[in-house]
Amino acid sequence: KWTIEEKELFEQGLAKFGRRWTKISKLIGSRTVLQVKSYARQY
Rank of each mutant, 00 (worst) to 15 (best):
Q35R: 10
W21I: 12
R41E: 15
V36A: 02
E5K: 13
Q42H: 10
R31S: 02
L34T: 15
L34P: 15
A40R: 00
Y39P: 03
R20S: 14
E6H: 04
T22L: 10
K26T: 11
K16A: 09
E5Q: 11
W21K: 00
S38R: 10
T32W: 11
T22M: 10
K37H: 04
I4F: 13
F17Y: 12
K7P: 00
V36C: 08
Y39Q: 04
F17A: 02
Y43R: 07
A40Y: 09
A15H: 10
E11I: 08
S38Y: 08
K7N: 02
T3A: 03
T3G: 10
T22H: 13
K7F: 09
K7L: 01
V33A: 14
G18P: 03
I4S: 09
G13D: 06
T3F: 15
K16M: 12
G13E: 00
K23C: 11
V33C: 09
L27Q: 05
R20E: 15
W21A: 02
G29M: 06
T32L: 09
K16P: 01
K37D: 03
Q35C: 01
G13K: 15
K37A: 12
E6R: 15
W21E: 04
I24D: 12
G18L: 10
W2M: 04
E8N: 13
Q42D: 15
K26F: 01
S25F: 14
I24S: 03
Q35P: 04
R20H: 13
G13I: 06
S25C: 13
R31D: 03
A40T: 01
R41Q: 14
K23Y: 06
I28L: 10
K1L: 09
G18Y: 09
K7W: 00
L34M: 14
Y39K: 06
R41D: 15
A40W: 11
S25R: 04
K16G: 02
S30T: 13
W21V: 09
L27C: 06
L27A: 09
S38I: 06
T32I: 00
G29V: 11
K26L: 04
F10P: 10
G29T: 07
K16W: 11
I4V: 08
Y39E: 02
W21S: 01
E5W: 00
S30P: 00
Y43I: 12
K26C: 07
K16S: 09
K7D: 02
R19G: 09
Y39G: 01
S38Q: 14
F10I: 03
G29S: 07
E8V: 04
S25K: 10
G13P: 07
S25A: 15
S25Y: 03
E6S: 04
S38N: 14
G13L: 09
G13R: 06
K7G: 05
V33S: 13
E5A: 11
G29F: 12
I28H: 01
T3N: 06
Y43S: 13
I24P: 01
R19F: 11
F17D: 01
E11N: 10
R41F: 08
G18T: 01
E11D: 11
S30G: 04
T32V: 01
T3W: 13
E5F: 00
T3Y: 07
K1G: 13
R20P: 04
S25H: 01
F17T: 03
W2A: 04
L14A: 09
I28Q: 00
E8K: 15
A15S: 11
A40S: 06
A15T: 11
E8D: 12
F17E: 05
A40K: 01
G18D: 01
A15Y: 08
Q12S: 09
V36N: 03
I24H: 01
K37M: 13
K1R: 10
A40Q: 05
R20W: 01
I28M: 10
L14D: 08
V36E: 01
I28N: 00
G29R: 08
R20C: 15
L34E: 15
R31Y: 04
T3E: 09
W2K: 05
T22N: 10
I28K: 00
F17V: 03
T32E: 00
A40I: 11
K23N: 08
L9A: 11
K1N: 14
A15F: 09
G18Q: 08
K7M: 11
S38H: 07
A40M: 08
G13V: 03
K23Q: 13
E6N: 00
I4Y: 07
R19S: 14
S38F: 03
T32S: 12
V36G: 02
R41H: 13
E11L: 09
S38T: 14
G13C: 04
S25I: 15
L34H: 14
A40E: 02
Q12Y: 04
A15R: 06
E8M: 14
F10E: 05
K23F: 07
E11Y: 04
K23G: 02
S38G: 09
R41L: 13
G29E: 05
T3V: 03
E6P: 14
Y39I: 08
S30Q: 03
L27Y: 08
W21P: 04
I24A: 02
Y39V: 05
S38C: 10
K23A: 13
L27E: 08
K16T: 10
V36M: 06
Y39S: 03
A15N: 05
L9D: 06
I4T: 13
R31H: 02
L9H: 07
K1H: 06
T3H: 01
K23D: 14
Q35L: 07
R20D: 15
Q35S: 05
R31W: 06
L34A: 15
T22G: 12
K16I: 04
I24W: 05
L34K: 15
V36T: 05
R31P: 00
L34N: 15
V33T: 13
K1S: 13
Y39T: 02
V36I: 07
E8S: 13
L14Q: 07
G29H: 05
K37V: 13
G13Q: 06
A15W: 07
W2Y: 04
L14T: 02
R41V: 11
L9N: 12
K37S: 07
Y43D: 08
Q12F: 03
Y39A: 05
R19Y: 11
G29Y: 15
E8P: 05
E5Y: 00
R31I: 00
E11G: 07
K26E: 14
Y43E: 12
K7H: 10
Y43Q: 15
L14C: 04
V33P: 15
Q35V: 01
V33W: 15
I28V: 10
V36Y: 00
K7V: 04
A15P: 00
I24N: 01
S25T: 08
K26H: 07
R31N: 01
F17S: 02
E5L: 01
G29A: 09
E11S: 10
K23W: 05
K16H: 03
R19W: 10
E11V: 09
Q42W: 09
I28D: 00
V33K: 14
L9V: 04
V33F: 15
Y39C: 03
W2H: 06
E5I: 05
R31Q: 03
Q42T: 12
I28C: 00
K7S: 07
K26Q: 11
Q12L: 07
L9Q: 07
S30L: 06
S25Q: 08
K16L: 08
R41C: 09
G18I: 04
Q42I: 10
S25V: 14
K1M: 14
E5D: 09
K37F: 09
T3K: 03
G13S: 04
Q12R: 08
T32M: 05
Q35I: 02
K16V: 05
K26G: 10
L9S: 08
E11W: 04
A15D: 06
R19L: 12
R31M: 05
Q35T: 02
Q42P: 05
R19T: 14
S38V: 08
Y39D: 02
R19E: 15
K26D: 09
F10L: 07
E8I: 09
K23H: 05
K16D: 05
F10Y: 04
R19V: 07
A15I: 13
T32N: 12
W21G: 01
T22Q: 14
L27R: 02
W21T: 00
G29L: 12
G18R: 10
K26P: 02
F10S: 06
K23V: 07
V33Y: 14
T32H: 01
K26M: 05
Q12H: 08
K7I: 04
R41G: 10
L9P: 05
K37I: 14
R31K: 09
A15L: 10
L34D: 15
R41S: 15
S25G: 10
R20T: 11
W2N: 09
R20Y: 12
S30Y: 02
L14K: 04
R20V: 13
G13M: 07
F10N: 05
R31L: 02
G29I: 12
T3C: 07
S25E: 05
W2R: 03
T22A: 12
E11F: 09
G18S: 02
L27W: 11
Q12G: 05
G29N: 00
Y39R: 07
E11H: 06
E11C: 07
Q12A: 12
S25M: 15
T32G: 03
E5P: 09
T32P: 03
T3P: 00
W21Y: 10
K7A: 08
K1F: 13
F17H: 07
Y39H: 02
Q12C: 07
K7T: 05
Q42S: 14
F17P: 03
